[in-house]
């Protein structure tokens, strides 16, 4: 059974068609990246999977049930493009929020928060408020929050966009380790071709507005990915393939007049 099944989904916001005729199936354990020009509907697609907005037409199914039911069952964790922290909660309390809502007891919560803080290297900042953090630190808190309750499906919207290259590469590795260890499924939005290729089992390339899937490229690099993966010739071939697919989508849009 697919984890995510999107059938002929179209979403319009008034006059704008954000995405059109999207068909996508994601199997358990896949790591799928969405890549495409700004405004092509990547965030929209992610929100449809998460049942945060409803498609204008078509259906989204998660774990074999309607997206709405999956949301109610807390089947997924989401990281938004901007961190979306609650200003009145300290770093620890922000991370603990989903655990509180899932009625974890205090001791388990404290242990888990500590573990997550170490993972995103924010130990020592537990009592800071969001305004006392840099943008990248805020984003790391929101990643820790999404991972805290071990969701089987992770929806991540440019989670590492605000980070420096070093932190980004380290968190890439951490994410891959979590993904392997927990056999979770990840849907990942990024603007970085190299990041998409490095992380994914499949890269979905989208064309400019109205967003359509213009190409799907399987990433057959060996697992597990390591620091040397980025230096392999096949890695560069795949990067080139994704880049060309992206440009093709762009040019197709521009060419006919």
């Amino acid at each position: 059974m697919s984890v995510v099944q999107i059938k002929d989904v179209t979403k319009r916001f008034g006059e704008t068609t954000a995405v059109e005729g999207i068909d996508l199936e994601i199997e358990p354990g896949e790591f799928v990246s969405l890549i495409g020009p700004s405004g092509c509907g990547k965030s929209t697609l992610l929100r449809i999977i998460g049942d945060l907005i409803q498609p204008t037409s078509g259906t989204a199914t998660v774990n074999g049930k309607p997206a709405r039911q999956a949301r109610i069952d807390r089947d997924y964790g989401i990281v938004f493009q901007d961190a979306v922290l609650y200003d009145w909660r300290t770093v620890s309390k922000n991370i603990a929020l989903p655990l509180e809502l899932a009625r974890w007891d205090r001791r388990r919560r404290v242990d888990k928060v500590k573990e997550m803080l170490e993972l995103v290297e924010l130990s020592g900042f537990e009592n800071h408020y969001p305004w006392q953090l840099s943008g990248g630190m805020q984003q790391r808190v929101s990643i820790a929050r999404a991972l805290s309750f071990d969701p089987a499906l992770l929806l991540m919207d440019e989670p590492f966009g605000a980070l420096d290259e070093m932190t980004r590469e380290r968190l890439n590795m951490e994410l891959l380790q979590i993904w392997e260890a927990s056999s979770s499924t990840v849907v990942f939005v990024t603007h970085s071709i190299a990041e998409a290729v490095f992380l994914s089992t499949r890269v979905v390339v989208m064309s400019p507005r109205p967003g359509r899937i213009s190409n799907v490229i399987s990433i057959d690099l060996p697992q597990p990915r390591t620091a040397t993966t980025r230096e392999e010739p096949h890695f560069f071939e795949l990067v080139t393939a994704v880049r060309e697919a992206l440009h093709l989508g762009h040019d197709l849009e521009r060419a006919p007049v």
Binding site: G50, D51, I72, R74, Y76, V84
Partner: peptide, 17 residues
């Protein structure tokens, strides 16, 4: 912030929460 609400919806939080 609408995003703050979306996040609560993603946790299936009820109106009271």
């Amino acid at each position: 912030n609408p995003r703050a609400l979306e996040l609560m919806h993603s946790y299936a939080a009820g109106q009271a929460e």
